[in-house]
Amino acid sequence: MTATTDRPGCDTSDLLHIHALFRRAFGDAPGLVRGVPDGDVARMRVVAAHVREVATGLHHHHEGEDLLLWDRLEQRSPACALHVGLMRAQHADVAGLLRDLDAALPAWEAGAAAGARDEVARVLDELQALLVLHLGQEEDRILPTASSVLSQREWDQLHEHGMASVPRSRMLLQLGWILDAVPEPERAGWLRTNLPAPARLLWRTVGRRRFAAHRAQVYGVR
Rank of each mutant, 00 (worst) to 15 (best):
A25S: 10
L21Y: 06
E119I: 06
M44V: 09
E160W: 09
A129G: 10
F26N: 05
R88K: 15
D11E: 10
D11W: 08
G136Y: 11
E126H: 12
A48R: 04
D28V: 07
T5I: 14
W203Q: 00
L201R: 12
R141H: 15
E184K: 13
E74S: 15
A79C: 12
W70K: 02
A212V: 02
P78Y: 09
P8F: 09
A216Y: 01
V84M: 04
R170N: 08
P78S: 07
D100P: 03
H61L: 00
R153K: 15
L101F: 03
G189M: 13
A29K: 09
E109L: 14
H61N: 04
R24V: 14
G31T: 10
L158M: 00
R210G: 06
A188S: 13
V132W: 10
G35R: 12
M163K: 12
E109G: 10
V84F: 05
P8L: 11
W155N: 05
Q75W: 12
H62W: 04
G115P: 08
E74L: 10
H134W: 02
D140Y: 09
A188V: 14
E139H: 06
W177L: 08
R72W: 04
R122W: 08
A213C: 03
L97D: 03
A104R: 04
P106W: 03
R88C: 03
L82F: 07
R209G: 11
E53S: 13
H161K: 01
P37D: 13
A49K: 01
D125M: 04
R210T: 08
E53A: 11
E126P: 02
R215C: 00
H19S: 06
P30A: 05
A216I: 00
L67C: 07
T12Q: 09
P183I: 04
L97K: 04
E53G: 06
A48N: 01
Q75C: 07
D93E: 14
V132T: 10
L175K: 02
H50E: 09
D14Y: 11
E186K: 11
